[in-house]
Design a protein around this nucleic acid. Structure first.
Lengths: 106, 106
DNA sequence: TTATTATATGAGTAAATAATCATATAAGCA
DNA sequence: TGCTTATATGATTATTTACTCATATAATAA
């Protein structure tokens, strides 16, 4: 047990929490990723469906999905050659939803 | 009245909302800004107090406070030559608090 | 097997970002 | 007025980021 755990410093955050929190918000800090996650609110979509719907290149979508996948914000299931992506973090999706609603009526 | 307003596209967000939401999350996506906002949860602090407490340069803190001020996430009051900064957006502070709590017990 | 379709990935690039240094501004006091 | 303290700001730099293009991989069907 280290100092930090015995006498938690309430003025500052521990490094790990800081990293996780900043990574999470970084994921939500990009318009393209927001649009992708927003699309995945209710349904699952293939990479190509996302690209067509949002008018993005397949490559762009794939790169961003990998980013979101690494943070476990999305998951996918395979059907033949098609991968259907869906959201995988309720807390983050709720945070996004609330902030969108808050921003919408301003 | 344009197309968008007559037939809102529920698959995508309007540009303004997208901008506000992404800017908000961008603000929370940097460790230094998170630490500053975390410090301002309960108290107001001067620029120098923030710098000393978080072990940052005065200039760094001042730059980040300007960033947060532009987004109206913080405000300040003057006392002589000293500026006391405090948080100014309850919704964002709540979002930050919830995500920190969520990340802490993981 | 070869062709086709869907997706992933690596390299390259332009733009955005965060920190630092040096300096400017602004308020208060002697 | 000049001096001190607190803060802001502009320029520079190193790093990160998001996209694009070209190509690789993977699954399926003919």
């Amino acid at each position: 047990m280290n100092e930090e755990q015995i006498h938690p410093n309430h003025d500052d955050l521990d490094e790990e929490t800081l990293f996780v929190v900043s990574q999470t918000f970084k994921a939500l800090g990009d318009p393209t990723r927001i649009r992708i996650l927003y699309l995945l609110f209710n349904n699952e979509y293939s990479v190509n469906e996302i690209a067509k719907t949002l008018n993005l290149q397949q490559s762009t979508v794939s790169h961003q999905l990998r980013f979101l996948k690494n943070l476990r914000l999305v998951k996918y299931r395979r059907e033949g050659t098609t991968l259907y992506y869906s959201h995988d973090d309720d807390h983050v999706m709720n945070t996004l939803k609330q902030t969108i609603e808050h921003a919408s009526h301003m």
